[in-house]
C-alpha cells in the first residue's frame, strides 16, 4: 500500500465521524428491531479492493454476535514470491465477535466488542528439515499458515433511513494466540486490526 492509499482510511474515518456527530444531535428515539444485519467494511474496499463482509445478529437490546469474513491478497510480494524477499500474505480472515451496545437500541450507540480472528495466508519462508540421511537442511519455499488472535474493539453505530441502514465506526486491535510470527506482527504484540467504517443493511 502506498502512502496515499494508507491515508484514505484515516481521512475517511475522520469525515465519517464528523457526519456521524452531526447526525447524533438530531434524534434519539427508540427503534423497531431488525435482528439481522449485513455490513460491508468500506475501508478495506477502498484501500485494498477487497471485500470484508460482516453479519451481525442483534439477539437482545444491548447485545449482539456475528462474524466477519474477509478474503483478499494483502502483502508485499503477494502476487509473486520470486523476488525472494516478500515475507508473506494474509489471504483470509474470519472474525467471530460479540458486542455490547452501551445505549441499547437507540439510533446511535457506542459499543464495545470482543473478537477472535482466525486468519491465514502464505509466506515465503525458510524452514529447517531433516534429509533422508539424517542431516539438517534449510529450504526456502512457500508455505501456508493459519493464526488465531484475540482482540477488543470500540465503536459507534448510527442508524439511518428509518433504521434500515447502519453506519459504524469501529476500531480494534488483537494479538496472536497461536500461529507463526509474520511480517504483519505489528509492534506491541498487535497482529490484527478490526477497524473501519461499516455500512450495513438491517432486516
Amino acid at each position: 500500500m502506498g502512502p496515499l492509499t494508507k491515508n484514505i482510511p484515516l481521512v475517511y474515518c475522520c469525515f465519517a465521524f464528523f457526519i456521524g456527530n452531526l447526525y447524533h444531535s438530531h434524534s434519539q428515539d427508540s427503534i423497531p428491531d431488525y435482528q439481522h444485519e449485513i455490513a460491508l467494511n468500506t475501508i478495506y474496499l477502498l484501500a485494498d479492493a477487497s471485500a470484508y463482509l460482516v453479519y451481525e445478529n442483534r439477539f437482545s437490546d444491548k447485545f449482539s454476535a456475528g462474524a466477519g469474513l474477509w478474503y483478499g491478497r494483502y502483502g508485499d510480494g503477494s502476487s509473486d514470491f520470486t523476488d525472494g524477499f516478500g515475507d508473506g500474505t494474509r489471504d483470509y480472515e474470519i472474525t467471530p465477535f460479540a458486542r455490547w451496545y452501551v445505549r441499547g437500541t437507540q439510533r446511535t450507540s457506542f459499543f464495545i466488542q470482543g473478537f477472535a480472528s482466525i486468519y491465514g495466508g502464505r509466506y515465503d519462508g525458510i524452514s529447517r528439515e531433516t534429509t533422508a540421511a539424517g542431516f539438517g537442511v534449510y529450504r526456502r519455499g512457500i508455505n501456508n499458515y493459519t493464526n488465531l488472535a484475540l482482540g477488543a474493539a470500540i465503536g459507534q453505530e448510527f442508524l439511518l433511513f428509518k433504521k434500515r441502514v447502519s453506519l459504524e465506526l469501529v476500531f480494534g486491535l488483537g494479538g496472536d494466540l497461536i500461529g507463526r510470527n509474520s511480517y504483519y506482527d505489528y509492534d506491541w504484540g498487535v497482529s490484527t486490526a478490526q477497524s473501519g467504517i461499516n455500512i450495513g443493511y438491517r432486516f
Partner: peptide
C-alpha cells in the same frame, strides 16, 4: 472530548497500519 477520543483512535489506527517487524 469525544472528538479527541475518536481522533486518537484514528491516529492509532494509522500507526498500526505502518509498523511491522521483519523476519
Amino acid at each position: 472530548r469525544k472528538i479527541f477520543g475518536i481522533l486518537s483512535v484514528c491516529f492509532l489506527f494509522a500507526i498500526s497500519s505502518c509498523i511491522s517487524d521483519d523476519d
